[in-house]
Nucleic acid binder design. Sequence first.
DNA 1: AATGAATGAGCCTTCATTCAT
DNA 2: GATGAATGAAGGCTCATTCAT
Lengths: 220, 220, 220, 220
Amino acid sequence: MVNSAAVGQKRTRSWKQDPDAVRADILRAAKSEFAKKGLAGTSVKDIADRIQTSRRMIFYYFGDKEGLYRKVLEDAYSSIRQAEMELHLDGLDPLEALKRLVEFTFDHHWRNSDFIRLVMGENIHDGHYMKQIKSMHETNTKVIDQLTRICNAGKKEGRFREDIEPLQLHWEISALSFFNVSNKATFSINFGDELYTDEGQAALRARIVDCVLCSVTPKT
Amino acid sequence: MVNSAAVGQKRTRSWKQDPDAVRADILRAAKSEFAKKGLAGTSVKDIADRIQTSRRMIFYYFGDKEGLYRKVLEDAYSSIRQAEMELHLDGLDPLEALKRLVEFTFDHHWRNSDFIRLVMGENIHDGHYMKQIKSMHETNTKVIDQLTRICNAGKKEGRFREDIEPLQLHWEISALSFFNVSNKATFSINFGDELYTDEGQAALRARIVDCVLCSVTPKT
Amino acid sequence: MVNSAAVGQKRTRSWKQDPDAVRADILRAAKSEFAKKGLAGTSVKDIADRIQTSRRMIFYYFGDKEGLYRKVLEDAYSSIRQAEMELHLDGLDPLEALKRLVEFTFDHHWRNSDFIRLVMGENIHDGHYMKQIKSMHETNTKVIDQLTRICNAGKKEGRFREDIEPLQLHWEISALSFFNVSNKATFSINFGDELYTDEGQAALRARIVDCVLCSVTPKT
Amino acid sequence: MVNSAAVGQKRTRSWKQDPDAVRADILRAAKSEFAKKGLAGTSVKDIADRIQTSRRMIFYYFGDKEGLYRKVLEDAYSSIRQAEMELHLDGLDPLEALKRLVEFTFDHHWRNSDFIRLVMGENIHDGHYMKQIKSMHETNTKVIDQLTRICNAGKKEGRFREDIEPLQLHWEISALSFFNVSNKATFSINFGDELYTDEGQAALRARIVDCVLCSVTPKT
DNA sequence: AATGAATGAGCCTTCATTCAT
DNA sequence: GATGAATGAAGGCTCATTCAT
């Protein structure tokens, strides 16, 4: 019982090791665990047990638990931002561009709930670990730049209200898309899960597109 | 001397205890700790050390750590819902009522960040502990009922779109108000804190009121 | 094998626990282990295994390994100094008093080799932990005061050289008595153990008494 | 980046290696580390990190940690003994020869505190590792032979007491010279550092020369 | 009603060392 | 001759919890 886990299972892979593959394995498992249980709630053993590696390897590659966590966080953010950049919205009709951005964000967050949970965890820690990641600020300004271009185009055409702030707009889109995933559990418990069925999500998606577009449109 | 901290867990108050006061103290400290560090990240010792009580008392009054956590969660929710009920919106102009509800929710979440964090924690656990609290569902339907009355009044007057769903509307108000608090840390790190100054919050508040009202208003 | 130590032996004492006895047990075992293997070389498990206690108790009573070490060190010093104070040398003939002090120190160090080893360990750490013990300096000045009184009496009678410094004298007595114990092992290996037989020690004892007395006596 | 320190163990020198230079580097670093922290207190990583080598190299050249420690110990002793042999005392006036030997030992120990600390460490281990070094006994008898010649000369001239034992005399000289370095830290803490200033050391040096010479001189 | 003492299980981390080329 | 990758075992310490009064 005591030693069943420690001695019972030998778990060295027989196939020749590829360090990068091991690192990637660890990162994948860690992302999932940290997302599900937070930094404090996840034990290094939980992560090691998910893949064919010993706990020792995690420290070998990432120094310590927090180092691993930081790397997970960094990777998660950068892949999100990269995806955002792959939308090519410049040149589109401003309202259409905005619509696509909202839809993309909504869908993307929905498909990347691990990322959302990671961010929730960070907010519980007041962003303690994110502050330590240098690349963060730089990466994130790009998304605002993109939105600024859309707003400027929209304002020039008179299709956007003059007082629209790109940062506020990003906040609004994020809020609606983020909350949809972040609070799924408690919202379902409190109010039933009708918003989280396929139809519910489709309706919600349409609604928030509507809401955002409406909010930027000048009142006649 | 060396071990004063270690054995010092027993440093209890000398003055005669009031059981209810001790319970309340524990709950207060626990709420703050759980909010700040989550269930897993908080140790019973952290809580005991904040007040003049021994760890032992926590088990005495609440059975175990999860029991305490559940109680904290339950109390937090019920006090939030109670506040919502103290708004007397019936009879008001529907748009005015809605405006007040949005403003109230926004302000209330802002002032109760511990509650927000607790809810975030629960969502990380998929609402595991909230499911165990019986009173939850019942309490929460009231807020929907309230909104339903507002919507019905609004639709009757032709001031609200016919396709407005109270549940979606609650979701929308919640999303905007919740995210404002829940993601303050990461949003600030990523985009600066201009949205979180007094002016920034005032602007945001006005904006989401505008956004919600706009989204329920029939298009001309 | 792995679990034989961990699971095999249940080691709760059946007789009612006396906290002070447990503390004392731990301190005794720790003194012996730290003396034998130094701070780094001793594992908390080594100490716990010597007595009928779990590793956990050591942390319960002493906070951490260093806290225990500090306490061991403090106790060792204070009991040595206390013994020194129980010699009543005032009023004796100064040379006789000095002789007795040398003999006492020599014998006492010999009988308390754990103390000597503890001090050696501290010196390897540059006295790092001893510096943290407040009581040290105060306790130790007493032994110099005692020696000062002897010197003053001796000088007044013209039996001690005028240039004798009590601190140097203490250093000299300590050096000879300390080294006898501290370097027993290496000295034996290098030069045989004839100095460490009963006869060898008796001769050495006589010799250092002679040496010290000779060194304080005025040259004719 | 995060794990640069952890995986960074491999940061070896890029320039073509000279095996002897690497060995010497390792030995130098190891001597310093073992002296400062003892065998148990020193980790192989500590040593590797001081020089531009991987932990791996230490095992490559020295087999294991204890092998390295033994080599350090052996080298330290042999270089000390070698220095002692380079004094050419034969033919000098016996008292002068003895004086020079005392002064040399005192000075030499003072300048080689790492050696002293290594010996302290060995004594804590009861000379466990020194016993395994074959060359030890042989090397060390030389120093006694030297002293025997001095004593014989002195006795023949009637300038030394007849009962002086060279081994005891060596012990005495060693004790005073060794303790001066070995217990510097604790002595300073307990009694202030006046003995360890330049003046203090000069006075002490003179005093122990005096003490040793006095102790071998026949009483008139 | 309240508490001091005690504890098994588990935590993250570091250790010296070896495998495999 | 030299090295990057990997590892079993043990390290100190903290955890939520219960025993016994």
